[in-house]
Design a protein around this nucleic acid. Structure first.
Lengths: 345, 345
DNA sequence: CTGAAAGCGCTTACAG
DNA sequence: CTGAAAGCGCTTACAG
């Protein structure tokens, strides 16, 4: 390639100083209108490319925000990411995405990279077992952190998530109102705050209705479509098999419905199935899936907003911001011979 | 936070020069073993963070690779990205992800960002209408590009994609062998090489079998699960309605199957449906989806490999590397009363 | 095996 | 309104 064009190249071509050129390109009012235009024109003509590394070295602002979640392919995170992207784009922050797949070492490597790049902030859905010290490391090195979806005790920072306990209790109450007495919970784990909170909501709703909580009716683990599918056989083998199921997530529910159908059990006819998250697919699934809207885009927007506030100097506060979920009743939670009419959708 | 630790902090603490410290931290054999250990220990103790911006300014290598696709949430790209991630991780390259949503301006903004950050390379699935000049801009500014999934004529660089024409002809031939004579094509667009090539494969197979190609049987547009779902009603309204459908992608097929079921038509019983890509979900779907494995992970690995080769000095070559697709026959492509037995899966 | 010095390309006070 | 100079934190020849 030709000789690299830099500020000084432009300055020389125009008989100006690099200081003036630098100011002009950033629209400083200190530079006369006419000069500014000449400079910009010259920059365009010469194919000048702004060197952010150099600028960043000088200013110690990089314009980079890291976003790290369990798996960006999961549509639940997808919707959160989309709203984060919106918000960050508007503030001309570049964002770097990373999957940690709940691997602490991978998450830590990403954190180190951000630190080395001098990133301005981090939005993190912490991997299972994330120590508060990892968050402190970031904060200590001028990298403000905002958490989403999960919480880390003692982290000293704010996290945004749905009110999982409340949300799960909504679905379970709905099933109870529809006359179900035997309700299984499929998926999730005690190792995440999400898993624990959703289980608590399930348990609360049952206890509230005076129904027993049978531990063997919680099939732990599944968190993906595929594992939901695999869980169908475990469910079918359950002692005193329930005729209603609430799943840890929509993905699990959709996979489970595939699995149940394959075994000849028809969701929404022979068995009631509910999900959690209200991803796009839930409304068009067959049968349409009863679920809980988890406010993903609100989580994303607010988390990004909070991080941007931190970037402009707001102090860190350890608190949990709970977004209120809403029940979405669809056909999958009804049986053929239930008294209630399933909604048309 | 405390005073920032830099190379010179360590050098002073140990009575050495920054040159020695710099070399030691990068394991240079020029530094005596003992000195190297002392330096590394001090770096650890003091919480030293390597400043990549500074290093990169000096060396003009950033360790950053950009990856930009239509939509990372699409499982088709998901599988490609996962294999790219593998490959880049192994070479300790940080990667920055971006969705362009087929918006040229967004893609261009990302390109500019990479240029400004001094990224080392770019793996791109070009947005519809990408001008060759955008690729040239990157290449001219020392940013090697490798294309995936789509091609840009005159770009001067290599692209890796499945052999879409061949792959699509495989599915259509399969349907023809099963006795179908009226086969619709749903989804895709003439505006992408993928859309054009898959349509050509569809057309080739029909012509080969002496079947007419009816333009009204191509429902253009759908490329997502939701639009596949919406396409069901357009399909149902088709003149002289076909009893077999091949879709542009698995996502479209899965959405379409939801839509058809809702209208009371049972895929794999009343109507044959095929997808394209063989995403994970295809095998567990209800009914299991006949599709074409598109070699996503091979595309990802080879594209990443080719980019890494470029980074170590390999020259750019304009060529298209076609990955050979494979037919995956499952239940969705059979009708209840067809002669053949659907496979057990 | 180690050090002194220059330089990567910006921005930021400070002068004028 | 514009310019001269220092400095961000590294790495890289070059000496010794």
């Amino acid at each position: 390639m030709a000789q690299k064009v830099k500020l000084s190249t432009i300055a020389e071509a125009l008989g100006l100083s690099t200081a003036t050129v630098s100011l002009a390109l950033r629209d400083s009012p200190l530079v006369a209108e006419a000069t500014r235009e000449r400079i910009k024109e010259e920059a365009r003509q010469s194919g000048y490319i702004y060197n952010r590394r150099a600028a960043s070295l000088r200013t110690s602002k990089s314009g980079i925000v890291g976003v790290c979640v369990h798996d960006i392919m999961n549509p639940f995170y997808g919707e959160i990411l989309k709203s984060i992207e919106d918000e960050l784009d508007r503030h001309r922050q570049t964002f770097i995405l990373c999957n940690h797949y709940d691997d602490l070492a991978k998450q830590r490597a990403f954190l180190d990279t951000l630190l080395q790049l001098g990133a301005d902030g981090l939005i993190l859905s912490p991997a299972i077992g994330t120590p508060a010290s990892d968050i402190h490391l970031a904060e200590t090195n001028d990298l403000p952190v905002t958490l989403i979806a999960r919480t880390v005790e003692g982290s000293g920072v704010t996290s945004f998530r749905g009110d999982d306990t409340y949300g799960m209790s909504l679905v379970v109450r709905h099933l109870i109102e529809e006359g179900h007495r035997k309700i299984a919970l499929i998926g999730g784990t005690e190792q995440t705050s999400t898993g624990r909170d959703r289980q608590r909501g399930y348990q609360n709703a049952l206890e509230e209705a005076g129904l027993p909580v049978r531990p063997e009716w919680w099939i732990k683990g599944p968190r993906s479509r595929h594992s939901g599918f695999d869980a169908a056989s475990a469910f079918l083998d359950l002692p005193d098999r329930p005729d209603a199921v609430v799943c840890f997530s929509d993905l699990v529910a959709l996979g489970l419905m595939y699995g149940l159908s394959r075994a000849g059990l028809r969701p929404g006819v022979d068995i009631a199935v509910c999900g959690y998250d209200d991803i796009d697919e839930a409304a068009i699934a067959m049968p349409p899936l009863t679920t809980v809207s988890n406010g993903q885009s609100e989580v994303g927007h607010r988390a990004a907003g909070a991080l941007l506030a931190r970037l402009s100097g707001a102090p860190a506060v350890e608190q949990v911001e709970l977004i209120k979920p809403e029940l979405r009743i669809r056909r999958s939670s009804f049986l053929k011979h239930t008294g209630s009419e399933p909604p048309q959708s």
